[in-house]
Design a protein around this nucleic acid. Structure first.
Lengths: 170, 170
DNA sequence: TAGCGACATGTCAACAGTGGAATGTAGGAT
DNA sequence: ATCCTACATTCCACTGTTGACATGTCGCTA
């Protein structure tokens, strides 16, 4: 149920078409809440039907620019302040760890080494992103920076853990 | 597609019925890959149909004890060594952060304070679990301990991040 | 002016996950 | 002997996610 809130959140900042939103999902939101084209258009239609967003303008090529309604803003605020966050995160990365005993110690260490590399690469990618963005004083900047910092810390944590874990085997 | 591998992984350790597996999912695997009853039974039927597991024994009350086949072991090893782990993790926790600008600074800080508490509680719960288990020398123990350490480090990281983030606002 | 790439939306089938209903049995405690 | 709890499975409806297919237009450039 979070896709709708992601859309409401983006539309709370500025009006946009499905296509605009799709581009945003492909870039900044890709690492947090991926969504594809069909899902976005379907959900926009549902949101409009529920009165949480409305078509504000129509443009060339059938472009429909949506804006958030007061009802939509209320729903967004409700989600932000009242809905308890998901406690569990499905992680196939961690799931594999449970079953590494099936492999040889060498293979298990190789898996953890791959995770180390993956985490290092993720960290570097985010660091480059952080360096390339000019962080002005806007809200999106403040919270975008905070979200990015989470990514940096997460990757650092995972890298250190994977290195530690590899040492624990045999 | 990971539920099937979770089931194969568990069955690689010992034979079990759907009911046994369900109990395992409710306890040790609940924080890594939650699955409910209907999903487990459906997937077991599919796995048996595909020849990756087989009914090894039948017991009282229609109990069917499954065991992993050679084909199933091959699939499990393939998943562990060859299938690249998911790069993105959907996180509604982080998604909210992007949109905290919609709220007042006080409300945003309150959200981060809740996250701090949540992370602290999660850490304590895992710490209690770690203290209560007797870590023998088996593989499950080694890798179970490694997975648990991930949880501890993750919660610690998130708590520190949430505290840092709250300071960044205003 | 012809063509191409980006813009733009809609629909569909398939699979994964959630939650609940229905059904029944075995075995231990009172 | 009865009852309750835990054991045990199956099915169903609904929602969310993925990937592919289908369709068409605008505007720039060669």
């Amino acid at each position: 149920m979070s896709l709708r809130h992601a859309l409401l959140g983006l539309l709370s900042d500025r009006r946009a078409s499905g296509y605009d939103l799709l581009k945003t999902f492909e870039t900044s939101l890709a690492n947090v809440w991926p969504a594809n084209q069909s899902q976005i258009y379907t959900e926009l239609t549902k949101l409009a039907g529920a009165g949480l967003i409305a078509v504000a303008a129509e443009g060339p090529r059938g472009r429909k620019e949506y804006e958030i309604t007061d009802e939509g803003m209320a729903e967004l605020r409700h989600w932000l302040t009242e809905v308890p966050p998901q406690r569990v995160i499905r992680s196939d990365v961690l799931l594999r760890v449970f079953f590494l005993g099936v492999l040889s110690p060498e293979q298990a260490r190789a898996y953890l080494a791959d995770l180390t590399d993956l985490s290092r690469a993720g960290h570097e990618q985010l660091q480059r992103l952080a360096d390339s963005v000019d962080w002005d004083e806007g809200n999106l900047s403040v919270y975008g920076r905070i979200a990015l910092e989470y990514g940096l810390r997460f990757n650092a944590m995972r890298r250190e853990w994977a290195e530690w874990a590899a040492e624990q085997i045999r």
